[in-house]
């Protein structure tokens, strides 16, 4: 426990938490929101395409957009780590935080599986496995967003949100 407090009270974490600068807590949280928009947005669009929306959009074209999705993912991994560090003791005692992490882990594994099953070489309609994975992908991302938003309500954390 001592380690948690030491990280939380480090100079950087104090600055993020308390500095009266838009680049501190507000800016980091903003990047986390934009990252979410990129990851969930591109992933959700891909899921819906697999489920049959926008049939003229070739599934394989998403290969070009996945690097952007990963960029969003890493933005959120980094900003998420900072947001965790500045609020370490409270978040690690909040069950909802683990629910969120579990949803993200499931969603990421799901994304890799879906990519394997949906991106069939010869543009045939995606197999049923892919459609099931697209549905679970949507459920996992909705779960991640919901549990993430509820972190501001379940237990008490720092900052405005």
């Amino acid at each position: 426990m001592d380690l948690l407090v030491r990280i939380e009270e480090s100079g950087f974490c104090q600055w993020v938490r308390e500095a009266d600068s838009l680049f501190a807590f507000p800016g980091i949280l903003l990047l986390h929101t934009i990252g979410m928009g990129i990851v969930v947005g591109i992933n959700g669009t891909f899921d819906l395409r697999v489920l049959g929306f926008a049939p003229s959009v070739r599934l394989r074209s998403f290969e070009r957009f996945f690097p952007f999705m990963w960029m969003g993912f890493w933005i959120n991994a980094i900003t998420g780590t900072i947001l965790l560090a500045v609020n370490l003791t409270k978040l690690t005692h909040n069950p909802d935080f683990y629910v969120k992490l579990a949803f993200i882990a499931l969603a990421v594994v799901n994304m890799r599986l879906l990519r394997k099953h949906a991106l069939v070489p010869d543009e045939t309609p995606p197999p049923t496995t892919a459609k099931v994975l697209a549905v679970t992908s949507i459920i996992f991302w909705l779960g991640a967003i919901t549990s993430g938003r509820l972190l501001a309500y379940v237990g008490k954390s720092v900052g405005v949100f």
Binding site: T33, I34, M36, G37, I38, V40, G41, I42, N43, G44, T45, W141, L142, I145, G148, R149
Partner: peptide
């Protein structure tokens, strides 16, 4: 947030 993601994606 869900709407934001869909629109932004």
């Amino acid at each position: 947030f869900v709407g934001l993601s869909l629109l932004f994606g």
